[in-house]
Design a protein around this nucleic acid. Sequence first.
DNA 1: ATGAAAGCGCTAACAA
DNA 2: TTGTTAGCGCTTTCAT
Lengths: 363, 363
Amino acid sequence: MGHDTDEERTGPPPGPAPEAETSPEEPPSPVVRRRRGAPTIYDVAQAAGVAPSTVSRAFSRPGRVNSDTANRIRQVAAELGYRTNPMARALATTHTGLLALVVPDITNPVYFEIINGVQDEAAEAGYTVLLVDSRESDTRERQALERALPIVDGIVLGTSRMSDAAIRMIAKQKPMVALNRAVREIPSVVPDNSRGVRRALEHLGELGHDPVTYLAGPEASWADGMRWRGLREASLELSVHVRRLGPLSPTVAGGVAAAKAWLQTRTSGVIAYNDLIAIGFIRSVTARGVRVPEDVSVVGYDNIFASDLVTPPLTTIATPRRALGAAAVRNLVAQIRGAQPRVGPPVVVPVKLVERESTGPRL
Amino acid sequence: MGHDTDEERTGPPPGPAPEAETSPEEPPSPVVRRRRGAPTIYDVAQAAGVAPSTVSRAFSRPGRVNSDTANRIRQVAAELGYRTNPMARALATTHTGLLALVVPDITNPVYFEIINGVQDEAAEAGYTVLLVDSRESDTRERQALERALPIVDGIVLGTSRMSDAAIRMIAKQKPMVALNRAVREIPSVVPDNSRGVRRALEHLGELGHDPVTYLAGPEASWADGMRWRGLREASLELSVHVRRLGPLSPTVAGGVAAAKAWLQTRTSGVIAYNDLIAIGFIRSVTARGVRVPEDVSVVGYDNIFASDLVTPPLTTIATPRRALGAAAVRNLVAQIRGAQPRVGPPVVVPVKLVERESTGPRL
DNA sequence: ATGAAAGCGCTAACAA
DNA sequence: TTGTTAGCGCTTTCAT
């Protein structure tokens, strides 16, 4: 990028390489192949005695070329240390091989397995994942997405903080699948929220708890809506009464806040919107002399890493986050490869109850 | 990429736009600007009545162009919805604006803040971060890095599992800075390990504990080496005896394993290689009737998220991980911008002791 | 300050 | 099956 002494080129324009065409005044340079930068298909082509396009084919669609020549080309390429240039390929194909995964907070343990699931499935399909952390800010989410958009082939949008409209806006620019949130007209994959809370209530019911308090999540949360709805239904079917307490911030602090309110109207059973709230709740009531699970049984949600570390270990609903991520990627890749985005109902993946020590029979 | 009916082009080759040059046999198409895909500098140039190169300058180096024309161009560009194409730019400049951040395990809370620090600082410098999770496997680390290498402008290598030789190999292909590990000849930024353990020992010493057991980290860990070394030195200066127990896996399980051994030779003070080990240790000894901190005071290391959630909350050494990440990026960006990689000693960032409830006076 | 034109390295018609 | 030839959209000399 700046040499002005360049004369002989190795590139495409001049036909079959101008042999000894050193320009008159130039200091005679040794006949050196390649001037700077990495070797290109032209270098390989020349060394292998084939056309550049053949080299290109040998790499981008093996099978479209005689296996003998292909082998020779690969051989030569290896010797020269040739590596295909992703930028050039991207410019020509408009495909980068990059997938964006957007999450509201990398720090949130809930996303670990989702990330892993996405990464693995993506790698399998030959894609690299660009992780976008929006830090719970829809502005940042939008900006980061804006930056990523032009360089990715598709987007996995996890637990977005943006409006449905904004999401759909972006979805028409690139293939997308929503995770942990169902967005109309956009392929979505979500955990079985209603089944999850149902299992929790069932569990508490079997232990003799009734009524049960639901420590609700953030107001705008799609998941919270689904869970509360599921809880109401389950309440009817199982004949266990449920109360709602919230909305709460989905954090330890949120749980602490919930504890204050709960102390007024104690129920022996509690289901939290997520593990963080459950943990904050338990810590707070414990500090006030309430015993868990003797005085109150609490069920968390998500089965995050820390839920097995706290005292007592938390009974919780485990969501198959890895599977969730993988399913999203499969769907996304299918879209990229040309499949019509399926506008049907969201893909629902199953959840399960993990019994630990924060729940016990009513005394 | 497939239309074979294209005739009139909007692109560069033809000079000042062939007015009504519809070819003889072609069905007369309406005078439609732009055929497909996003608008390019050529579209903007034409609409603004300037040359493509001027549009390019207006965006890539403002100031190199008359501010009036620049404004007009930006105006027109906005109207047309023009966005510069990163792939094309990358191909032309060999710069992608991407930085790779490699960590051994996204799941490990230690990396949260590092990641955030890196992201923020990178964003500030106009870069986007490609997070590479090697899952504690040097093979995976190498492969992922291999994929990322050609598309990034530089690499922040966090706690690498690769050999020094392998690291140096990669470092000569792209600018790099090592994090949490000092690699000779490569700019590195590390937390003040020796100061950290010294503070821990000091704290325990003040509380009257002597001797103190060090629950060592993984054998191959660079950080563990530094910490143990620092501990020996501090031991001398502070006149507090230290024993070493390990190596241990840097996990909760590792701490459980350590507990078994510790029960034979109880010391009233314990310093763990990291918080996870400390947590496992505490849980395990507590289950055997040992009280924390009455019977044993334990200091963790890292101050991960969960360390404030366990019972009792963990006294620990907080490493300024966000600052660590930011420092690494600053250094890296400087390198990319042409600065010589500084081969001096690693940049060391300070740490501090966070007192919580897992330590107390010797009884 | 602006324009003209030559690439950057690869893919994809089209032809042979 | 392979070669020829245009581009992909932007940057960057070199002129003007």
